[in-house]
Design a protein around this nucleic acid. Structure first.
Lengths: 207, 207
DNA sequence: AGATGCCTTAGGCAATCGTCTAATCGAGTC
DNA sequence: GACTCGATTAGACGATTGCCTAAGGCATCT
């Protein structure tokens, strides 16, 4: 479930540069926009085609079904996200800088978060999607585990590494989840405190 | 948004004992079951009526629209939940006992959590629901703020109270959110560590 | 007995759903 | 110029959607 192997893609990707590729991307882009604006329940073949400026029949021609459209959206989304996370935490900068960068993403990535959370809500009731969502979560967890192992040691934290990672992931997910409902109470205060707390650690230790 | 006033009910509740009341409850019960099993996108008037064992026309007769059905589900759900939380944290027992009780609920309440999270996912795209979801969240936050003020003082925590409450709420919501996708990595380790950590505090202090 | 009023029924309305087919388009090949 | 073939089009299929209406059932009250 959270092992390392990448699940097989839904379909072999089209040859880049072909007209197929650009139309497909138009559909996937449109799907993301619609997930942000109306949610997954409001995305039908016709609505999607209209948003993409394409013919409704092409949805079936390219993807076979609406379910596959969302699978492809999730696939493309995953690639981009994991790559960026891995790059960021892998950079050769002090941990607190990585943390601040991550918290900056937490703020500017709001549109993408809506896409991602709509896909997850959809996955609650679709085993096919669930598996992939769990895989992405596992990837993310792996990145954080690697990134937090060092700092945890240096700071002398007693919390087990997997518990620490679970805590960080969960409270981030919880904050994003709340914000999707327009709730931000205490978020800023919490992030400020964490930042200050990390700063005191970083002050005492050399990196 | 998160102020104290209760939002006006969608409709005046039916007189208890009338046939109306029992049929309405049958619909609301059926709606909850369907939210658990198929998600909000799969609940139509006919599916709902079938699950409730009633005539499809009654959905319109009783609720006026499907949107109102979900609003009523949220209303009824809210009353029950807030009442229990308030009672639990208000009880005259050591804080760690309350915490353990809450973590026990976190485990046994999974069906209700699915209902609650489906409603929230629905609310992301429906301002009418969003407002009520935010109100419930505010109620919950108020309960936790009251419950954590004392222990925070006693334990001498430096984290501001609103940040502490935000942290507890967010990481709980995040864990529930993950579990809905079948993810539990690190959850047990985290909860165990917190429990042990609280126990050391409770050992030193009297209460 | 008759009338009142709520509850429930079956059924139909236009609109939309996902999916599929057949015809057309247009660029590239012989 | 004839041909090929992927890309695109319009259109139709049956099923389902939310919502509404007209008629019947049934307990209660006068």
């Amino acid at each position: 479930m959270t092992d390392g192997r990448t699940p097989a893609p839904v379909r072999p990707g089209p040859a880049p540069g072909s007209p197929r590729a650009s139309t497909e991307e138009a559909f996937l882009d449109a799907a993301e926009r619609l997930l942000i604006t109306v949610g997954y329940a409001g995305v039908s073949t016709r609505v999607l085609a209209d948003e993409a400026g394409a013919n409704p029949g092409l949805v079936h021609y390219y993807f076979g079904s609406m379910d596959n459209v969302f699978l492809r959206v999730l696939e493309r989304f995953t690639e981009r996200l994991i790559a960026r996370q891995r790059e960021m935490y892998g950079a050769d900068i002090p941990f607190i800088e990585k943390w601040r960068q991550a918290m900056h993403y937490l703020d500017v990535d709001r549109p993408y978060q809506k896409v991602w959370y709509e896909l997850q809500a959809m996955a609650w009731n679709k085993p096919e999607l669930r598996e992939r969502v769990a895989w992405v979560n596992g990837q993310w967890r792996a990145v954080l585990t690697e990134a937090f192992a060092g700092p945890r040691e240096r700071y002398g934290l007693t919390m087990p590494l997997d518990a620490l990672v679970a805590l960080v992931m969960a409270f981030n997910e919880g904050m994003i989840f709340e914000r999707l409902a327009g709730i931000e109470s205490g978020h800023a205060a919490l992030l400020e405190w964490i930042d200050a707390w990390l700063a005191t650690w970083e002050q005492g230790a050399s990196e």
